[in-house]
Simulated assay, not measured.
Amino acid sequence: MALPSVGTRVTYPAGDLIARARVLHVEPVATDDGERLAVLLDTTSIHPVDAGWPDQPADAGVITVIDGAALTVLDAIVAATDGETLHLGRDIPVRKGTEGWAFVVAHLVDAGSAIAEGDEVETRADALLRASLSRGHTACHLASLALNRALADRWTKDPRRDPLGSPDFDAAAIASSRIEPNGSVDRYRLNKSLRRAGFDATVFTGEYGADELRAAEASIDDTLATWIAGGGDIRIERDGDLLTDRRQWAADLEGGTARLFCGGTHATSLADLGDVRVRLELVDDDGTPTLVMTTRAHAPS
């Protein structure tokens, strides 16, 4: 069977853990961990990692062939094909949406797995890992908005605003974001371009930087506690069901609804997060002061 000409339909944005699917293509691939089979399906509930912005790890899970074996998904990666060649992760040579290319989820399984094109299968994501990563991703977004609010008076120019109207420090300074079970780690570079944009980096690098870090932490934690106490809904708003269709995270917060473009998975209510707190640290990254924000969500028991 030829490589697919249409992208994978994904059901995880709606919170689905299980999906029925058909195998479109199976291909041996070489990975850093050895030989694998890349399994392409028409539909999946397995969230993949995207090499373009690999903040949320892939789901753990299984592919069960109907009346057959259950295969462990060793990894799930965003891939792309022009109909002739399958490119995995960082090897994708074009941007999403490029005409003539289909973006798909490559499910990596053991090289000797009994699965073939045309098989009817079921995908099942691990519920506990999904829930913890979803809490971590939602807490990450909330913490970034609360950080923007805490630093709103540290700008000497009027930069781009975030969805709640605060100067968008997160968008201006973010270097990397890593979602973890029940939390995240975000790194912000306080470099020359950020200072030229109008942010006063001396708030953290000056004589009283340590005190300012603790004050910002307290402000963020207070904002998070207020939002979470409101118990607002969280949802994914999407243009369609394909992997590359545009999706937005939306959260009903005190003072309005925040929306951010996001391809990850999330909690469905602020009440699911429990107690969320952050820790701020200033580190040196090859001579550039870098603010590290570690966020932890302690889910309700």
Results as ranks from 00 to 15, higher is better:
residue 23 V to Q: 08
residue 23 V to I: 14
residue 24 L to M: 15
residue 25 H to F: 12
residue 25 H to T: 08
residue 27 E to L: 12
residue 27 E to I: 09
residue 28 P to M: 10
residue 28 P to A: 13
residue 29 V to L: 07
residue 30 A to P: 13
residue 30 A to F: 08
residue 30 A to D: 15
residue 30 A to V: 15
residue 32 D to N: 15
residue 33 D to T: 15
residue 34 G to A: 12
residue 35 E to A: 14
residue 35 E to W: 14
residue 36 R to L: 00
residue 37 L to Q: 10
residue 38 A to H: 09
residue 39 V to K: 02
residue 39 V to L: 06
residue 40 L to I: 11
residue 41 L to N: 03
residue 43 T to R: 15
residue 44 T to Y: 11
residue 45 S to L: 04
residue 45 S to D: 13
residue 46 I to K: 07
residue 48 P to L: 05
residue 48 P to S: 13
residue 50 D to E: 11
residue 50 D to R: 15
residue 51 A to C: 11
residue 53 W to S: 12
residue 53 W to D: 10
residue 53 W to G: 14
residue 54 P to D: 08
residue 54 P to Q: 10
residue 56 Q to E: 13
residue 57 P to Y: 07
residue 61 G to D: 02
residue 61 G to F: 03
residue 61 G to Q: 03
residue 61 G to H: 08
residue 62 V to A: 14
residue 62 V to R: 14
residue 62 V to Q: 11
residue 64 T to R: 10
residue 64 T to L: 09
residue 64 T to S: 12
residue 65 V to D: 14
residue 65 V to M: 14
residue 65 V to F: 13
residue 66 I to K: 13
residue 66 I to Y: 12
residue 67 D to C: 12
residue 67 D to K: 12
residue 68 G to M: 06
residue 70 A to P: 09
residue 70 A to T: 09
residue 70 A to L: 09
residue 71 L to Y: 05
residue 72 T to Q: 15
residue 72 T to N: 13
residue 72 T to K: 10
residue 74 L to V: 04
residue 75 D to Y: 03
residue 78 V to M: 05
residue 78 V to G: 07
residue 79 A to G: 08
residue 80 A to G: 11
residue 81 T to D: 10
residue 82 D to N: 11
residue 83 G to H: 08
residue 83 G to I: 00
residue 83 G to L: 04
residue 83 G to Q: 04
residue 85 T to F: 08
residue 86 L to S: 00
residue 88 L to S: 01
residue 88 L to Y: 00
residue 89 G to Y: 01
residue 89 G to R: 02
residue 90 R to E: 12
residue 90 R to N: 11
residue 91 D to I: 01
residue 91 D to E: 14
residue 94 V to A: 09
residue 95 R to K: 10
residue 96 K to F: 02
residue 96 K to N: 04
residue 96 K to S: 05
residue 97 G to S: 05
residue 97 G to V: 00
residue 98 T to M: 02
residue 98 T to V: 03
residue 99 E to S: 14
residue 99 E to C: 09
residue 100 G to Q: 06
residue 103 F to T: 00
residue 104 V to P: 00
residue 105 V to L: 04
residue 105 V to W: 05
residue 105 V to F: 06
residue 106 A to D: 01
residue 107 H to K: 11
residue 108 L to W: 01
residue 109 V to E: 03
residue 109 V to F: 09
residue 109 V to K: 04
residue 109 V to P: 02
residue 109 V to L: 06
residue 109 V to C: 06
residue 110 D to F: 05
residue 111 A to W: 09
residue 112 G to R: 07
residue 113 S to T: 02
residue 114 A to V: 03
residue 114 A to K: 15
residue 115 I to D: 00
residue 115 I to F: 02
